[in-house]
């Protein structure tokens, strides 16, 4: 390679490396701001600000969803496996919102540790399954649960899956 080409090659490498460093350091410094939402663990640890517009996200806990019979008021718990957070919401939920699925809520955290949401979004996972396959999988899970619940510890598996409340 001719020397001037080698020099220009070095310039190219230099541009890419410096740009990479700058953007890398920037996004490292701003990593908390780049995150779209706080997890229930972060909220429990007091990392999330109160009375400010923030987002929280997590899995909607099984059997935790409750809806008022005469209004759009609803409440549910979200969990990240180690902590849970109670969310109150008044409004229409997206079609794909469901228990055992992830959701992201926009709103503010009160002093009582309850999150009042103005908007709730469903976070879809990366799994794609045809209905028949999903049914077959659900049947297999139900069958297993049935076999377990016929034993002495009825409903024990469900409690085990329920993350402990942190407040």
């Amino acid at each position: 390679m001719k020397p001037e080409r080698k020099q220009r090659l070095l310039v190219v490498v230099f541009i890419v490396v410096v740009a990479g460093l700058v953007v890398g350091l920037l996004s490292y410094a701003l990593r908390e701001n780049i995150n779209l939402f706080y997890t229930p663990s972060q909220v429990a640890a007091g990392e999330a600000p109160t009375h400010q517009q923030i987002r929280v996200g997590g899995m909607v806990v099984t059997d935790s969803f409750q809806r008022a019979s005469d209004s759009l008021e609803s409440s549910f718990f979200v969990s990240d496996g180690s902590a849970t957070l109670l969310i109150h919401y008044s409004g229409i939920l997206p079609d794909l919102f469901a228990e055992d699925e992830a959701a992201v809520a926009t709103g503010s955290l009160g002093d009582d540790g309850v999150f009042i949401a103005q908007q709730v979004l469903a976070k879809h996972d990366e799994e794609y399954t045809p209905p028949e396959v999903a049914d077959a999988m659900q049947q297999a899970i139900d069958k297993k649960a049935k076999a377990e619940s016929t034993g002495a510890q009825q409903g024990e598996s469900k409690i085990r899956n329920m993350p402990e409340a942190s407040y």
Binding site: S27, R31, N35, L121, K123
Partner: peptide
Amino acid sequence: LVGTVNIPIIYKSVDWWYTLHQP
């Protein structure tokens, strides 16, 4: 060339940060 930095960021963004977009 400066913009190439953005490509791995787009690709890995769903793993590095909490996003609404699925992995």
